[in-house]
Nucleic acid binder design. Structure first.
Lengths: 224, 224
DNA sequence: GTAATAGTGTCTTTCAGACAATATCGA
DNA sequence: TCGATATTGTCTGAAAGACACTATTAC
């Protein structure tokens, strides 16, 4: 018996997006045991000399081809002794918020990767303890929209107030008053930065385009 | 070279309290290398079959003799490849909030343990990356007082509104209006539960004693 | 009585919720 | 013109900041 005990370390990612007005999460179908054939969060082992954040970024780009400009924050670490049948393994889970992206690419151990509606993923048995990790990640994302300006992380670089509102509605699963929402986000200093451009109107008056402002914390917060 | 890489896992604790109107953190002086003689956060290796939360509870009771009723929550995990000169080690940091307690007991690897004023600890070079962990823990605690009822975790089972206010003032480092504070905490449903008792007056009118109410999240939050 | 702390009430400002009204586009 | 969406404005109620005032104790 060695001391300190030998423990393997992985990173797992809760990658969230809003596509077509729907709140979605990236899942991969496992190609190898354990849990072969089951859906899981993308992730993998941390390398010997690799920082945890670097490992998370590496997995993120392997699974989605996304760069380093997505929002990525540590979620929590999960380490029940029996959570991986291969042996003692703890996983550092990360939360990534990305604008609507294209099709995901299945990574090394995965046979398939797909965007799932969050509500359906939450109701599905995932591999390992990924149900719990997903639930915590979704909860964190919903809470963060309230007291930070992170809703814009789901939007492209330039976006309209309506697009941003649709993000909030998709993540929270409730509809918001367009007028009060508009007032809140445009009159909170530093939340949005107006551009010179306007969106081409599909119908009705064209909307002004905005960029993310510099403010991180909202005070007072948004209200669901 | 093995795969997955062999990584040691520790838990480290940011144990915060308020004593004599001062915001304090528990530090231990290391007795053995690395960083022998330096002050550090209490912590130690996770055992082979031990859950992370159990490891945190074990270290908490080893260092303070405190039971399982203290508030304990996961803070974050730190894993820079070179953070421990003994070899690759990641640490899962935890945040504990406790009512004013007696003298700490030095654990296994420590020669000394003491409550430090947080401001002084933040200005001191600690072992490993414990400066960063402490900063993050203090920041989390300060933020949590705003949108949760956790200030009461620093108080004994029964306490007065003034005691609670002194906790907020010590943690935030600002003075609060006693009358507005009283209104806020007593009129927020579920924050405080009145008891039949009153505190014996040191001077002036005796204050009613309260217990923690059931509410976790404050909405609207406290404001600094 | 006075000093000290506990607790209540009042006025003002800020801001969310509800929703009327106006602006600007395509067809 | 109309239909649709964007944007501004208005009224109301909740709650924070400032602070006068009352309550209850020890001395």
């Amino acid at each position: 018996m060695t001391f300190p005990p030998v423990i393997a370390v992985t990173v797992d990612l809760v990658i969230l997006t809003v596509q077509e007005g729907e709140f979605r999460v990236l899942l991969v179908r496992r190609g190898a045991p354990p849990f072969a054939g089951d859906w899981a969060l993308p992730g993998g082992y941390v390398l010997a000399e690799e920082d945890l954040l670097d490992a998370a970024h590496r997995e993120l780009s392997e699974e989605t081809g996304l760069g380093r400009d997505e929002h990525l924050e540590q979620l929590a670490t999960y380490g029940a002794p029996d959570r991986d049948p291969r042996g003692r393994t703890i996983t550092v889970a990360w939360l990534a918020l990305t604008p609507s992206a294209g099709d995901p690419t299945a990574g090394t151990d995965a046979v398939e990767a797909a965007w799932w509606p969050v509500s359906r993923a939450l109701a599905t048995d995932l591999a390992f303890d990924h149900d719990v990790i997903l639930r915590d990640g979704v909860e964190r994302a919903r809470a963060k929209l309230e007291y930070s300006s992170l809703g814009a992380a789901f939007c492209p670089p330039e976006f309209t107030v309506s697009q941003l509102r649709e993000v909030y509605e998709a993540v929270w699963g409730e509809s918001l008053d367009p007028r009060n929402f508009h007032r809140k986000v445009t009159r909170t200093p530093g939340f949005l930065e107006p551009t010179e451009h306007t969106a081409s109107a599909e119908a009705g008056r064209p909307a002004r385009l905005y960029r993310r402002g510099g403010v991180e914390l909202l005070n007072p917060p948004m209200t669901r």
